[in-house]
Write a protein that binds this DNA or RNA. Structure first.
Length: 561
RNA sequence: GAGCCUGUAGCCUAGACUGGAUAGGGCACCAGCCUUCUAAGCUGGGGACCGAGGGUUCAAAUCCCUCCAGGCUCACCA
């Protein structure tokens, strides 16, 4: 039911089509409002008087039960029992699909996570991974056909550096079973450090990079392949933890050859040019500086590889839109990429979007895989789980160990992901253990807890949830809850349109707050069967919408915690 | 120097696209609430000249301009 439209129908005969309906700051004032300020000019009267005049000319309808004047505002109250019935029935009918929109044919690829092999997966990567996963779910829920893609950097200078440092300082070492992640990360950090100390070593690295790219050294390729796999296995474990799922994996290695081809084609066409021996494309007239495609030794840079990747994505996977979930630091790179695609005559250039997000840093400063100044995922996870484990244990001494472990894991990941998703994409996140380890207030576990509490009531009740007397849901807390439930589809729409999971996160917090207020003041299981039944229907609906919200964030909705 | 992003209480954050009725939350702090459905919860309290200054408007956290502060980026890393 579109109440705004209904109100417009009431008002249009009186004041024409030029007006806005807004939502009052407080539900006690009404559900919708018409501010009369703008009408003052045409009616040549004060806004207060205009509101009075309009009120005299209009009547409530089936859906709009009451219309009141409040100063310069005309306030509309929707028919509450209609809203209750309509909203709750809709939720029960659609269940996990409540809030979803109609399917459409557009196929959207979301590229996210993009972890590089031979480097650390640190907490900074969690933001992009959580964000991409959530966006994929939101867009799918909205109705797009979504393809989730990961593009992993398994070749290039950083890999060459790692291989170089391994061969020079760790040759023959077998990768450890425990702390594999930090072993890999440390060798990379060591490489960077040694190169800083002795810049001349760069030539050795370049040689390795060349051999890596033209596959001329078999034993090098074997080492590369083996260590690459170690990284990828480690990443998969992390993705399982984080609930990230990919339909396709692209690797830099597979677009390297085509990347160079494209660069050379562009050179031939005169779009690219040679400069200092390198192949570049001059984008200065678009204020995008100079973009280097090939190094002077002919090896391929990520720029050229990205051109090949874009081509591959549209050609092979028949997508209509291509979303890059990539850190803000790469904004210029992506602008250069999109502009070059356009100059190449690539017809889908305008279908590429950069969804930028700000970095995660430490209280001590910037996080970096190069310097090792970071928090490794594996270290962070064990700290988090350990804390969560104590929390769960202290509350549920009677639980079996398996249940405790599962619950702790669940809560820890929820807290972490919610922390990454709740602030606006453009805001810097300072990673702070103290904050992530807070399971109270505006956090993931806060929302999960409400869900678990509802599950617990539903489990306890023996009443069938059917034929509720909706009229019994007449307290202020219940009205607030229902109103919040009813706007969920609109919230999904906003989150999709803006590519902002934090809209869903904030919605979930608000719904949780409203539920907790209700829970505190009213009992669900009462002496009256009718009332209990009606409230069971209400809290089931809340549970469903909390679950849907959490799903869109990529967070589990536990039935107990 | 140029471009992009950010600036809301001690700290974190919503609201800015689409200007409206007392700027929502949270952490921390203070005072309360567990013989009744999970206190990871709830209630109350103090704490904000919405970075600064101009402008537009009946009305500005929101739009425009200038400035300040911070972050990111600007040729062979990704």
């Amino acid at each position: 039911m579109n109440f705004k439209l209904e109100i417009r129908k009431i008002l249009e005969p009186q004041i024409g089509k030029e007006f806005d309906i807004e939502i009052p700051p407080n539900p006690e004032m009404g559900d919708f409002a018409l501010p009369c300020f703008t009408l003052a000019k045409t009616f040549k009267k004060g806004p207060n008087e205009i509101a009075q005049d309009i009120l005299k000319k209009i009547r409530p309808t089936k859906y709009i039960s009451e219309i009141k004047v409040s100063g310069p505002y005309l306030n509309f109250f929707i028919n509450k029992s209609f809203l209750i019935k309509e909203t709750l029935q809709e939720i029960f009918k659609k269940k996990g699909r409540y809030g979803a929109h109609k399917k459409n044919k557009e196929r959207v690829m979301i590229e996210y996570s993009q972890a590089n092999t031979h480097k650390a997966f640190h907490v900074g990567h969690i933001r992009g991974t959580s964000l991409g996963e959530s966006l994929a779910r939101i867009l799918k829920f909205y109705g797009f056909s979504v393809v989730q893609a990961n593009y992993q950097g398994d070749t290039g200078a950083h890999v060459a550096k790692w291989l170089w440092a391994y061969l020079k300082y760790h040759k023959g070492e077998t990768p450890p079973k425990v702390n594999l992640e930090s072993w890999i990360a440390n060798i990379y950090v060591e490489a960077v450090k040694k190169l800083e100390e002795v810049p001349a070593f760069q030539e050795e690295v370049n040689k390795i990079n060349l051999h890596l790219e033209n596959k001329s050294d078999k034993s090098l390729i074997k080492l590369w392949s083996k260590t690459r796999k170690l990284s990828l296995i480690a990443f998969e474990k992390i993705y399982r933890d984080l609930g990230a799922h990919f339909d396709y994996y692209f690797f830099e290695r597979e677009v390297e050859k085509r990347g160079r081809e494209i660069a050379l084609e562009l050179l031939k066409k005169g779009i690219a040019e040679e400069s200092d021996g390198a192949v570049i494309i001059n984008l200065e007239k678009y204020s995008l500086g100079v973009w280097v495609l090939l190094r002077k030794d002919g090896t391929c840079l990520y720029s050229a590889k990205d051109l090949a990747l874009a081509e591959l994505k549209f050609k092979k996977y028949k997508i209509d839109r291509n979303l890059y979930v990539v850190g803000a630091a790469q904004s210029l790179h992506l602008k250069q990429l999109f502009k070059t695609l356009e100059l190449m005559g690539f017809k889908n250039a305008s279908k590429c979007y950069h969804l930028s997000f700000s970095e995660v840093r430490l209280p001590t400063g910037k996080m970096s895989s190069r310097t090792g100044q970071n928090v490794l995922y594996s270290d962070m996870k064990s700290t988090l789980i350990k804390y969560a484990l104590n929390q769960v244990k202290s509350r549920h001494e009677d639980w079996a160990e398996k249940k405790i472990n599962e619950s702790a894991n669940n809560i820890a990941i929820a807290a972490l992901k919610f922390n990454m998703l709740a602030p606006d994409n453009n805001k810097l996140i300072i990673f702070d253990y103290e904050k992530v380890l807070k399971f109270e207030g505006d956090t993931g576990p806060y929302v999960q807890y409400a869900h678990a509490r509802i599950c617990s009531i539903l489990k306890k009740s023996k009443l069938a949830i059917s034929n509720p007397k909706y009229k019994l849901l007449d307290t202020e807390e219940e009205s607030n809850l229902i109103r919040q439930l009813s706007i969920f589809p609109q919230i999904v729409l906003e989150a999709e349109r803006a590519y902002k999971p934090n809209i869903i996160a904030n919605y979930a917090l608000e719904l949780t707050r409203k539920f907790n207020k209700f829970y505190e003041l009213h009992k669900v299981l009462t002496d009256s069967e009718d009332l209990s039944r009606a409230r069971l229907v209400l809290i089931s609906a809340v549970k469903q919408v909390l679950a849907n919200s959490l799903y869109l964030l990529g967070i589990d909705a536990p039935s107990h915690m």
